[in-house]
């Protein structure tokens, strides 16, 4: 039996891998983060600050940990599975749970003492600031 070439190439794992990589590059331009995963993060960047937000529905505040080291921001924690008594029947299970960890590369070193984080309605908002000593300074040029 002859297999049409088109169906063969459609299942070519190398072509699929390449397409996947291309899609990933389009989704995550630059070097902002690792591969996608939970939780999804949005990043805003300014000259002196970076804002990171993340959707963490169903995660308790005490189960969230954020750390900053050099230019790496890490958000990790655990989303616990909802309680259900024995014999409970699941009709729909779209939500996921478990441990998570995401790292975001920052465009500059931030002051670890000036990190502001807020968690409300399952959304985490983090503001990171550039240390004053690290801010670019305008150097006055003296003429003759």
């Amino acid at each position: 039996m002859l297999t049409p070439a088109s169906s063969f190439f459609r299942n070519d794992p190398f072509a699929q891998l390449e397409r996947m990589t291309r899609d990933m590059d389009r989704m995550f331009p630059g070097n902002w983060s690792n591969a996608p995963g939970f939780p999804a993060v949005n990043v805003w960047r300014g000259d002196e600050a970076v804002a990171i937000t993340s959707e963490l529905p169903g995660v308790e505040l005490e189960d969230i940990e954020i750390t900053v080291k050099d230019t790496t921001f890490t958000l990790s924690g655990e989303r616990k599975a909802p309680d259900a008594p024995k014999g409970a029947r699941w009709h729909l299970r779209e939500r996921s749970h478990g441990k998570f960890s995401r790292a975001v590369k920052l465009p500059f070193v931030v002051d670890p003492d000036k990190v502001e984080a807020r968690f409300k309605n399952g959304v985490l908002q983090v503001a990171l600031h550039r240390p004053d000593a690290d801010k670019p300074r305008r150097i006055e040029i003296r003429g003759e």
């Binding site: 529905p57 909802p82 014999g87």
Partner: peptide
């Protein structure tokens, strides 16, 4: 919203993920 639906003898519970909603 992503949803879980679980049924017990007492009734049904729905859990809907709606981050950002107050």
């Amino acid at each position: 919203p992503l949803t879980d639906i679980v049924e017990t003898d007492d009734g049904v519970s729905l859990m809907l993920e709606m981050p950002g909603v107050g």
